[in-house]
């Protein structure tokens, strides 16, 4: 099964990429719905215009610090996105999951590749933002330590793995219950608050910052962004990276367990 899946991989990637091109309107709509960091950027720069905002750790946030933070958030959000949960929900409800199961490739692999194949187009969307980030004085608030930039790709991949397998776990729950899509909404609402998507996490009251350290959401967006914006040194980033991958591993195990048990119950349509 694994050898066969690997041989099919190039074709799967190609199909996924062509699909992302075919549904480009859909992707543009999606990109528009992720412009929240830009809205938050204007809000926070308005708040910090007269007096810089001081975070829990003593860091002082001026307007350009907010600009580089939220531009980084926008970029990271494009690159760690996954939507397998919704796909699974619809396919389970409509019985079309059966088609996917018939293919001689592991279904989770085809979801994963489908989600990854859209990344080139999303990366293209981030290009202008990257240019702005590096060409304006927002650059001053980026990390100057190249060791940290070496860790950045790992944090980004870790963020994607958490997003994808959380999606799989919640999507697989639709094999058990009708309302898994609502769980997805709950996950998203918590994600918006605790990931650093709406504000840098050190602006939280202390007890919420502490909570955010233990929740998975910060490792989806917060950690990669903190690496970009130079919050961490190489040494202080490593334990956080370890925590991120611990979450990733836990979600992989949990989602596979839910998927396997749920699949045993799946009887397609009219079963």
């Amino acid at each position: 099964m694994i050898g066969r899946s690997l041989r099919a991989l190039p074709a799967l990637v190609r199909v996924g990429f062509v699909e992302s091109l075919a549904y480009r309107t859909e992707m543009i709509i999606w990109v528009f719905s992720t412009t929240m960091p830009l809205v938050m950027m204007t809000l926070w720069t308005a708040v910090a215009r007269s007096v810089p905002v001081v975070g829990g750790g003593g860091k002082s946030w001026g307007t350009t610090a907010f600009v580089s933070y939220f531009l980084s958030v926008f970029i990271v959000r494009q690159l760690i996105s996954g939507w397998a949960g919704w796909e699974m929900y619809y396919e389970v409800r409509q019985g079309t999951l059966a088609m996917r199961l018939l293919r001689p490739i592991h279904p989770l692999l085809s979801y994963g590749v489908g989600n990854l194949a859209a990344l080139p187009l999303r990366a293209a969307v981030t290009l202008p933002v990257i240019v702005v980030l590096f060409a304006t004085n927002a650059r001053d608030h980026l990390s100057h330590d190249w060791h940290v930039w070496l860790l950045f790709p790992f944090a980004l991949v870790g963020g994607w793995v958490i997003t994808f397998f959380a999606n799989v776990a919640i999507g697989a729950l639709s094999l058990f219950m009708e309302s898994s899509v609502k769980l997805m909404d709950v996950w998203l609402a918590a994600f918006f608050v605790f990931s650093g998507y709406l504000f840098p996490l050190d602006l939280f009251p202390d007890w919420l910052t502490a909570a955010a350290k233990w929740l998975p959401f910060r490792y989806q967006i917060g950690l990669p962004v903190e690496l970009m914006t130079g919050v961490h040194t190489w040494e202080s980033a490593l334990p956080l990276l370890a925590k991120q991958w611990a979450w990733a591993a836990a979600l992989i195990v949990a989602s596979l367990a839910i998927w396997n048990r749920g699949l045993a119950r799946f009887q397609a349509f009219g079963g």
Binding site: W44, V47, V54, F199, P205
Partner: peptide, 11 residues
């Protein structure tokens, strides 16, 4: 979060 403690200027 925006208003935080009394020290933050807010909107």
């Amino acid at each position: 979060v925006v208003y935080g403690d009394a020290s933050r200027p807010g909107i």
